[in-house]
Design a binder for these strands. Structure first.
Lengths: 310, 310
DNA sequence: ATAAAGTATGAAACGCGTTTCATAGCAAAT
DNA sequence: ATTTGCTATGAAACGCGTTTCATACTTTAT
């Protein structure tokens, strides 16, 4: 494939001039510009982006680290990122980690190797200190509350307290909590708030999908001591719970109230009460923070949407 | 940042030797290897990936073109791609197009500029001829039936016929069809098959999400001539339909049968009959096809899962 | 003993666009 | 008439790792 020097030769100009033409720099006479463009045309020239990246030291690619693409929570954040990236003509490199250290490291190494201009970590398993140590190679934004790095987050502690408050006001006393993984900043915040506000503890882990919700109902029914309300990981789990309740004749919300997280279409459609999280904005803000010079922590608000399950 | 020449100097060897050490080439004496590694360590050297990419002419990055990330159909394919990519330590660059020409072009241009080693197009709006014209710059795989390019696909024509057959055998006569966009290879195949098998026509477009399903029911109820069965775009639309039917006292499947596509968890959970599509495999196959030398068309099977809505 | 094969190493070219610096002509300002 | 400033253009350096080629020394095979 023809390169810029071939073009220079063909157009009888210097490579600098070719580069100027290609980049719309001023200070190129019309005739030379024309000559270059003709050469470009006839030799079917196009830039090698890797050379551009190397030379410029930038790629206009940002990495996005997330555990699962298909989970609505993350795909919405991703969507927000994509939307904002599109504005600046940046591209997105995806690192689906499944919460594996190695995969997260790959992303960090790509940043280090200048393949990425920045990195957005939607969720992680690596220690914060490790992530931070890479921040000297480029901007890193986290979607959780941290003090050392740029971050966008939701105050999950408060959201849980608000949810519990809401449930208690409606007369529910034995409030349970469903969560996905056992570790993680966001999870910890939820658990801490929960333990702070509730004496009895009904905590269900590994609750992530519809079928997990169904499983939880079965689990609850087997037990004599059962919650009368649940704060649910997300709308999908709630949908599963709702579904299995119907099958088993458990009346929602009388026998079991449900307050889920995310407030996706599904919640609206099934009339599930839900804590709305501005995930799209979260992605957008995360992207914007990449190019913010000063350290910033950006908190986003949640809001409780009251429907028929509470 | 130190580069390979600095290392060479510090270790008193040639750059070739440094490169050999960094790439685990044989033919390096232990002492030189040690010297290089020490220099790498003390100067905190790490490769500039853009230089590697330029030099090697490869990036180990594949582009994925899809309209919407958050749509389960595509996020599942993406998942399959990601899974397979992870095996070869390839990375994924995401091009969410919203079916905009420009975005698709960006992906194609990235391939042309050697930023990508290959491209998987999950769905497109650009004419096939345009896509094909870029295939000289790198492998392109489509997720639809084509004769000119590598592709993985499902025979949507047959799947519609099978669905209709199934519905007819159960006694339904006025079969309707819901679709998303009006154009597209997959859509066309479905429409063609539908028109071929059904004399009456009940076709609903822009059916993609839960709320679209609800809307469709409202629309159906307003009309005197209504279908008694629907072939539905995907499980989400079916869920919306199911939901709105319940609200309006329409009994499923007696008054309205539903056969959806994709067979996601949602369908299982709501006991919706669905045509299972091997989307994960589709993604995996698509990725594998990128590195297949010979032209290949790979058809994947669908299967009809009979549940309570038919 | 000699050819053949393998080990080890470095110089230089290669992949390729961008950018700085120097140079030179020409117009506007003093 | 002279300085200042802008327009135009090219040579060369820069970003940086990889790879080929040539060279030279060891071994192993014949």
């Amino acid at each position: 494939m023809a390169n810029i020097r071939d073009i220079a030769k063909a157009a009888s100009v210097s490579v600098s001039t070719v580069s100027r033409v290609l980049n719309d720099h001023p200070y190129v006479s019309d005739e030379k510009r024309k000559a270059v463009m003709e050469a470009v045309e006839s030799l079917n020239f196009h830039k090698n982006l890797n050379a551009v990246h190397l030379s410029k030291g930038k790629t206009h690619v940002v990495g996005v680290v997330l555990p699962y693409i298909h989970q609505p929570f993350f795909s919405l954040i991703l969507n927000g990122i994509a939307r904002e990236a599109s504005v600046t003509h940046s591209h997105i490199m995806l690192f689906q980690t499944n919460y594996e250290d190695d995969k997260e490291r790959e992303a960090l190494e790509s940043l280090k190797g200048k393949q990425l201009d920045g990195l957005i970590v939607c969720s992680r398993t690596l220690p914060l200190s490790v992530i931070k140590s890479y921040s000297k190679h480029g901007p890193i934004v986290l979607c959780e509350e941290t003090s050392d790095l740029q971050c966008v987050y939701i105050d999950h502690h408060s959201s849980i307290l608000a949810g519990i408050e809401h449930l208690k006001q409606s007369g529910y006393r034995k409030i349970g909590l469903t969560l996905n993984r056992k570790s993680g900043t966001n999870t910890s915040q939820r658990v801490t708030a929960y333990k702070q506000a509730c004496s009895e503890e009904f905590v269900f882990y590994n609750a992530l999908n519809i079928e997990d919700g169904e499983e939880i109902v079965r689990c609850i029914l087997e037990n004599s001591s059962r919650p009368d309300a649940l704060l649910v990981t997300n709308d999908y789990v709630a949908a599963g719970i709702l579904n299995e309740c119907r099958r088993n004749g458990v009346v929602v919300p009388d026998e079991l109230a449900l307050l889920s997280y995310d407030n996706q279409h599904l919640a609206e459609s099934l009339e599930i009460s839900s804590v709305e999280l501005p995930l799209l904005e979260m992605g957008q803000e995360a992207f914007k923070l990449l190019s913010s010079e000063k350290p910033e922590k950006r908190e986003l608000p949640f809001s409780l949407i009251h429907r028929k399950t509470t």
